[in-house]
Design a protein around this nucleic acid. Sequence first.
RNA 1: CGGGGCGUAGCGCAGUCCGGUUAGCGCGCCUGGUUCGGGACCAGGAAGUCGGAGGUUCAAAUCCUCUCGCCCCGACCA
Length: 493
Amino acid sequence: MAKGITTRASDYSKWYLDVIDAADLAEHSAVRGCMVIKPNGYALWENIQSQLDAMFKETGHQNAYFPLFIPESFMKKEAEHVEGFAPECAVVTHGGGKELEEKLYVRPTSETIIWSTYKKWIQSYRDLPILINQWANVVRWEMRTRLFLRTLEFLWQEGHTAHATRQEAVAETKLMIDVYRRFAEEYLAAPVFVGVKTAAERFAGALDTYCIEAMMQDKKALQAGTSHFLGQNFAKAFDVTFQDENGALEHVWATSWGVSTRLIGALIMTHSDDNGLVIPPRLAPIKVVLVPIWKDESQRAMMVEATDRLTKGWKGRIAFKVDDREQYRPGFKFNEWEKRGVPLRVELGPKDLESNQVILVRRDTGEKIAAPQEGLLEKIEQLLEEIQSALYQRARVFRDANTFEEDDFQAFQKLIEEPGGFFWVHWCGQAACEATFQETSKATIRLIPIDGSKEQKAAALFAASRRPLEYWWQNLISRIALILQPCGVRRIL
RNA sequence: CGGGGCGUAGCGCAGUCCGGUUAGCGCGCCUGGUUCGGGACCAGGAAGUCGGAGGUUCAAAUCCUCUCGCCCCGACCA
């Protein structure tokens, strides 16, 4: 069937790499831990970028660009931030053949360089809010890497906003995690849980880290995006103050939020199958591929001409490709475009020409549909939307079927190993208990839900569990943690 | 940094233990022909500092020493 692609069942990690290879998305570079994103992979990123960028603009943000290099002294200003990032930073010590007076960190994230700049931009409440995003590359010296999921250098966007009040900053943090949720659901076709991280998993320097967590086909979690409420930590570290309406001097409130090329990893692991990549139509660089079929030279000319006629007027309306290469037979082409995840294939052969029809083949289901040539573009557009929503539904059903509630810790320890999945469980809010969870079950707390959907249940479960009241974290008293299997690929920030 | 594995054609590998023709095989690539509704076939062809350096030897991909790099497992991971 799919030559060269390891099945998911036999070796999931190998399958993941095989899919990337088969779809020609990326490859390892000469530099350890760094990847080359090839045209097919980059086209996906460009589509992700343009959609997200539009969503950022809609919510009032503007793009800007800050330097790759950050003076060491900046990195060291915010205590938690230093501690969190120092171990994984690349540091430049020489420039122009001379040792630098002050070392320069290659940005692992840009809070420090940005807040040192915001200090100059902000004097009055009239200067706020500042709503800026930047598309950039960052470097984090990870010990183990996997293509798209964790590499030393990766591409991302990082939003950095400044506000006059706590409420406004919190609202911004929530707004942006909701933008990410919408993007994941409507474009990646990936259902996500939204919540906040525990203190242990929080961004270094944040008061709260909101996240979206998606379930991959191996039932493990992938952190797909984070949005941080930074409080006044960076404003204090960089002494960024403003005068309010009453003339009082106050520190500015901050947020930051980001998603990265890891989303491509999420896309692969959410939808792809043993035949290769599956791309949700809305993000597909090529949405339809047309394969004319012929037996001899004269037929070839006829079929290519028919294909041209059929696609007349499609340009600018839909991203399509006609594969009329002579050196490959149809079967080869079918397979090639399947591996590459093109959502829909149109076959057009002599028989179809006679009966004024085409054969449509869905990448997600493999279903073949005979359709009239009349009104083909409309039919295709409709099918693409169907595929988009079918992919979401399929992923949703899979996730829900593998998400459980469990009251009993002993039972949970067994279930997390087999069958695995996501588990809503009790957590008292104490770091010590979180550590125990992780040590004894190899599970991590992925998030604490914020949408209130679990609160009733939590209260009930809490009563039933008879745990001492003081173990509950006051702010989160009715929340339950989402816990799941440990995953080598669990965070983006 | 610890444990294990691997560097031979673009890719995947055999050959290395036990030194000895012109270093092979599959895929891919190039040329020509026949094919073409689910990964075509035939014929011909191009392509290699055997990771690097040094040594042993009449002779090294093969033996010895050093060295570089990569992969997997662990440690690490806001």
